[in-house]
């Protein structure tokens, strides 16, 4: 797949290039947004917002990074803006945490071995760190690309990832 052709097509406002971009990256954008927002509908909204903004934003995109990195950066910023605008991410996470604890108490221990348990462990993390961990460990993104997405020094990103993994492991260990 030649990203350059997609890039040139998008600059000209070509809808088929946008469709191709959607086919390649929409799933990744959606999953990152979902990891950050923990809400399917809001993640879908972010996905659509990101792709609606692509024809305009691509005019300022120089193509010096991969499309995926560029889209992730837009997605992370869109999610953070949504969380900040709503001013409810902290309350939401605390609320979710309470629900999670209640649900966990009433379920069998085996539930923690599956993906749902991991999702609940991830809910312990701040949204930004959660997205970072998802991109690194689930999407196998490099530290260099994370630096590009988050605009942070690599040392800061590594430290955050390390702390996040510890929190997740401790959460899972404590509940198992």
């Amino acid at each position: 797949m030649d990203e350059r052709k997609v890039f040139d097509g998008l600059k000209k406002g070509d809808r088929s290039s946008l469709a191709l971009l959607w086919e390649l990256h929409s799933k990744n954008v959606l999953n990152l947004a979902f990891q950050m927002l923990k809400n399917r509908d809001e993640a879908e909204d972010i996905l659509m917002d990101v792709f609606v903004s692509v024809p305009v934003r691509v005019q300022g995109f120089r193509g010096d990074s991969a499309f995926s990195t560029w889209l992730y950066r837009i997605t992370v910023n869109a999610c953070l803006m949504k969380l900040r605008a709503a001013k409810r991410h902290r309350e939401l996470e605390e609320l979710n945490h309470d629900v999670i604890v209640e649900e966990n108490l009433s379920r069998a221990e085996s539930v923690f071995a599956d993906g749902e348990a991991l999702q609940k462990a991830l809910a312990e993390l701040p949204a930004e760190t959660r997205g970072m961990l998802w991109l690194k460990d689930a999407e196998e993104m490099s530290i260099e690309d994370l630096v590009d997405v988050y605009g942070m020094p690599s040392g800061t990103i590594k430290a955050r990832l390390s702390r996040a993994r510890t929190v997740v492991r401790e959460f899972l260990k404590g509940k198992l």
Binding site: K27, M48, V52, A113, G115, K136, R169
Partner: peptide, 26 residues
């Protein structure tokens, strides 16, 4: 292993009409 294993986490797929909604908004 240092990384968290996300293989058990279900990956979401965009809804069928999402791209058409994007085009409609454009």
């Amino acid at each position: 292993r240092e990384e968290i294993d996300f293989s058990s986490v279900e990956r979401l797929t965009p809804r069928a009409d999402s791209f058409n909604r994007v085009l409609a908004r454009l």
